[in-house]
Amino acid sequence: MKYLTPNKSNSQPKPESSPQKEPKKGGSDYLELLARWIVALISLPVIFISHIIAQFVTPGTPGYKLVGAIGFWIGTLLSTDSIWQVLFQGKPIFPWFETEWIGWLGWLQLPFNLLFWISFGISALVQVMEARTLRGKDPNQAKHEFEESKQYTLGSKPNGNIDLTVALWGDYKRAGMKERHTGGAIALFFWVLDITTTFVGRNPFRYTNPAAILGCFAYNCASMMAGEIGYNIWKLTK
């Protein structure tokens, strides 16, 4: 009978590995560390400012929402000036391209004037309706409405039936078109109102200097579009 003998090579304890010594840092390593700290201290203000700017240009951030809200309210206030002049015969709120304006004392009295707040409300409504026109439908919403409309199959026009049947068939065929046409007419009304009040309140063609005409025309366009752009930016954050 053979007996198995233990393997001596396995039974012997393994020598413990000696701990590795960490290399000592030389003078160049300390200089590199010092240079990194100096660069970090110098770039700290730039990094801080870049993070602040990112809050105002990145969609979804509080700063981005603030920019949209400020743009909407400033644009609404600029449009309010024209409505305030044309509909309520008030003095111009802003002095640009005007011979006279309400002045700083008049600004202090505006919050207590009911007609001013009515003008501001009309202006806000105009800006929102125009912004909806510029933005249009969301692609997902348009796709959903299109897919939903395809489930209704229109039969052929009835022949030999009473007029009521033909009339109801026409209503079925034109279902939803009345609301669509009405929405377009409402949007057109607000655009005409905004353009009329803007250019009647501040007519660029009353000047003779071409630079003044061009400047007043550009200001009118900017005052009309500022509210819509701000509302669209603010709407994208919701």
Rank of each mutant, 00 (worst) to 15 (best):
I233N: 04
R135Q: 10
I233T: 06
K91P: 12
T196Q: 01
G176M: 12
S119I: 05
M1F: 02
E148I: 15
W117K: 05
G27D: 12
K143H: 08
N113G: 07
T80S: 09
Q85M: 13
L34I: 08
K8L: 07
E179H: 14
T76Y: 06
K65M: 14
R180T: 15
N113M: 05
Y231R: 06
L188N: 08
K65E: 10
L154W: 08
Y219K: 11
S82T: 11
A131V: 01
K2Q: 00
G170Y: 06
Q141N: 03
G183C: 01
I74R: 06
T80P: 04
T198G: 09
G176W: 11
N220Q: 04
T237G: 09
P45A: 10
Q55G: 07
V166Y: 11
H144W: 10
P15S: 09
M129V: 13
G71Y: 00
S79K: 00
V39D: 02
A69Y: 08
G170Q: 12
Q55Y: 03
L134A: 07
P62H: 04
F120S: 00
K65S: 14
L236G: 12
G106M: 04
C216L: 01
I53D: 01
E16N: 12
S18M: 11
W191D: 09
G160N: 10
A35H: 05
Q89A: 08
L105W: 08
W84M: 02
G63Y: 00
F97S: 09
I118T: 10
R206L: 13
G75R: 01
P13G: 00
K238G: 15
V128K: 09
V126A: 15
F205T: 10
H51N: 06
S223Q: 03
I93R: 01
N232C: 07
S28L: 15
R135L: 07
F116L: 00
L31F: 13
V86G: 09
K235D: 09
I118C: 06
A54F: 03
L66G: 01
